[in-house]
């Protein structure tokens, strides 16, 4: 019994945004994607707190507020901290991995090179999360 997820994608790379949208449509998933180009934009969306996303997909390397800084702010908020956040990045820097899990992330996935592999990966992640019981805003 799959749920329709509201996904907040925080990604500065336009093509990456396109990759996710294309993947969702290719898979014909009913999930709704909210786009934020960087950390500030994402925070302003979240702090409205009218409709909170079910999960957040977060890129780490971003201009201005980077992924880890954003994550810290998020985890300090009494409400927002409960939103499962999955890191979606090209960097497998061990230091970053440790830091993210320390602050608190629900997952850490590396973007594969090939789009086919990417689709496969996103499918599994979204399938997994749509099976989960989530906090509804």
């Amino acid at each position: 019994m799959k749920k329709n997820l509201t996904i907040l994608l925080i990604e500065d790379d336009m093509i990456e945004v396109m990759k996710l949208n294309r993947t969702i449509s290719k898979l014909e998933y009913p999930h709704k994607i909210i786009e934020a180009k960087n950390g500030e934009e994402a925070l302003s969306i979240l702090f409205k707190k009218d409709r909170l996303p079910d999960i957040i997909l977060l890129d780490l390397n971003m201009p201005k507020l980077n992924g880890i800084e954003f994550l810290s702010i998020l985890k300090n908020d009494s409400e927002l901290r409960y939103i499962p956040t999955i890191i979606l990045t090209t960097s497998n820097n061990r230091k970053d991995v440790l830091e993210c899990y320390k602050i608190g992330v629900a997952g850490y996935v590396i973007k594969p090179l090939k789009f086919g592999d990417y689709v496969e990966l996103i499918k599994r992640v979204l399938d997994y999360w749509s099976c989960n019981e989530l906090i509804k805003g």
Partner: peptide
């Protein structure tokens, strides 16, 4: 080390875009 990671990320990201665009 940090720099290497950033560089590798910065180099890998466009590759991923190119790869995606090629496949599309």
């Amino acid at each position: 080390n940090e720099y290497a990671h950033i560089v590798s990320h910065d180099l890998k990201s466009p590759l991923r875009s190119i790869s995606a665009l090629l496949s599309w």
